[in-house]
């Protein structure tokens, strides 16, 4: 449009790029999920600045895993407020792949932001125990499933990042994407804990698109997404879907309000649709604040409704 300056880089909407520097495809982008990344970056930058300003903070802190989601958020925060106001905390555990840490270090080096490494293995082991030595959980903890250990590790990372929020003096920026939030592929009060989330309304395919546009290293964009809770784990391997397929289905079911019959008519496998519908329904609780028993005349979230950041609430 006339006089439009959407991102500061370019005034014209550019076609979505999915091509890497070697000419091969970085990822598969379903056409209906294509977005204007210039507009997305502009909106997100304003959002990040607005959230910090309203809370009276100038800095941000985030947990950088080496995966695409947290890497993209790091780039977005750096673009919005400058890398010097961002601290990335790398929190590997015993199960994390070494490549995750080296990829995270590449992001830190590329952005030239401050960072620190907090090993959380000892926190997890302190609870569950190691070898034959019980931890705080007692003998039973030695038999804990990978799922329990993974959830615990995610909540230890949450505890650490909120401590770093205090020492760094910055708000915790969330890194969960829309796809994983909708299917419930998150740890409650773990990786989904944050002060605000700039990418929570972007499907994985859209995260990838913005990541390409903003310059996230290609190796991070290409690698298989993983919760990195145990060696060799991948999201798609564990859940038995591909992100492009899942994103498309969620887009039609949720964003475009298509019925089961209608999406089957679009070519989706009915069993896949049923399974994803169930995942979305059973994880509804993870996306909402816990209900409070209504007793008094005004109840938080029910009939006491204020903006999170009211006049006079900003720090400092």
């Amino acid at each position: 449009m006339t006089g439009s300056t959407q991102s500061g880089r370019s005034t014209a909407a550019r076609p979505a790029s999915t091509t890497g520097s070697d000419g091969t495809s970085l990822f598969e982008l379903p056409p209906e999920l294509a977005i204007d990344t210039d507009v997305a970056r502009r909106v997100i930058a304003e959002f990040i600045r607005g959230q910090l300003r309203q809370a009276g903070f100038e800095r941000a802190v985030l947990a950088l895993s080496g995966g695409i989601d947290s890497a993209l958020v790091a780039y977005l925060v750096a673009e919005a407020i400058g890398a010097d106001r961002l601290r990335c905390v790398l929190m590997p555990s015993g199960s994390s792949s070494p490549a995750s840490r080296s990829d995270a270090e590449i992001v830190v080096a590329d952005l030239d932001c401050s960072s620190e490494v907090v090993e959380i293995g000892s926190l997890v082991d302190g609870f569950f125990g190691t070898g034959t030595t019980p931890g705080a959980a007692g003998a039973e903890g030695l038999e804990a499933s990978p799922l329990r250990r993974g959830n615990f590790a995610a909540r230890m990372r949450m505890a650490v990042i909120y401590d770093r929020s205090v020492t760094w003096g910055g708000l915790v920026v969330g890194t969960s994407n829309k796809t994983e939030a909708l299917i419930g592929y998150t740890t409650l009060f773990g990786d989904n804990a944050c002060a605000f989330n700039p990418i929570g309304d972007l499907y994985k395919s859209q995260v990838r698109q913005v990541a390409v546009a903003i310059g996230v290293p290609e190796a991070i964009i290409r690698k298989a997404p993983s919760a990195d809770l145990w060696p060799g784990q991948t999201d798609e391997g564990e859940a038995g879907f591909s992100y492009p397929e899942l994103d498309r289905l969620l887009f039609w079911r949720i964003d475009k309000r298509r019925s089961v019959e209608e999406v089957v008519g679009l070519g989706f496998d009915p069993a896949f649709v049923a399974r994803v519908d169930r995942m979305v329904a059973t994880s509804e609780f993870k996306r909402q604040v816990p209900p409070i028993a209504k007793l008094g005349p005004r109840t938080t979230g029910v009939d006491y409704l204020y903006p999170r950041r009211r006049p006079g609430s900003a720090r400092g």
């Binding site: 449009m1 959407q6 909407a13 294509a34 977005i35 204007d36 507009v39 997305a40 909106v43």
Partner: peptide
Amino acid sequence: GRDLAMASEVG
């Protein structure tokens, strides 16, 4: 602002 559609003239 919502609906970040690629198809839209202004995104």
